[in-house]
Amino acid sequence: MKPATIFNRWLGFAFTRPEPGSANWYFRRDKLAVVCLFAILFMIFVALAAPILTPYPEQGLGDPNLGEKFLPPSVAHPFGTDDLGRDVLARVMFGARSSLIASFAIVSVAMVFGSVLGAIAGYFGGWIDELIMRITDIFLAFPPLLLAITIATVLEPSLRNSILAVAVTWWPWYTRIVRAQAVTIRERNYVKAARSIGVNDATIIRRHILPNVLGPVLVQATLDLGSALLTIAGLSFLGLGIQPPTADWGVMVSDGREYVQSGRWWIGLFPGLAIFITTLSFNLLGDGVQTATDPRIRSV
């Protein structure tokens, strides 16, 4: 499919009246989820337009402004200023960039890698399945954040490496979901029909297996965006993610921790609030999508 066609379809999906009974129709009845979708779009807009939206773009990028240290929230600085006198609002806006990029990147990498492995394991079965799934078991044996911390520790701390560290721990979940689906789809008659026609295995996986697991996988991916954001924020909080002076929410909360006893609450509060609201939006959106696509749990 051409990119233009896909784009047109998405436009159509977003702006035409959904057919009653379609997942889109159910989704739109969930007002909270729709609000969250717009909240996320707003966050993306803020991240992109941060240099235009804030009067202090240099501070957002990291330049210190030592003359205005520790100012509490005011009209000029709605979120106050931090230990280097930088506008916290500007830092929060610029911080949206790494958080959003990281959560989408983690989920995409894990989804593509995990799904392909899962489809191969489920379709072929036998020793291939056994091998892939035992490797998956080993990765799943680590508590999620722990392995990411371990990997991020030995790598040079950076955004790319922290994304990599989390993605390495994330793909097995998709492998499991897709394998379970692929095992049932393999027994469907349309796969048998394709095999009896003589279609080769790679084409069967691409044409018959993957498109039919796409639904549940995308739902899972939406549900995972929030957890991915929390995980990456946790790594940053530990100093294992993106490095100063680039703005990052996790790092900012970590900085704010030092000022609890002196009562300078605004330094840690606002970036944490940004993490919370974005994660909450992702999770409510994911929950809405899941409910809309599952006939067993949605209500008419």
Binding site: L230, A233, G250, G256, L269, G272, I275, T279
Partner: peptide
Amino acid sequence: TIAGVSIPSFWLALL
């Protein structure tokens, strides 16, 4: 419960 799985623990601790 969705809020509960969305709140960063280190931030909640701080609050």
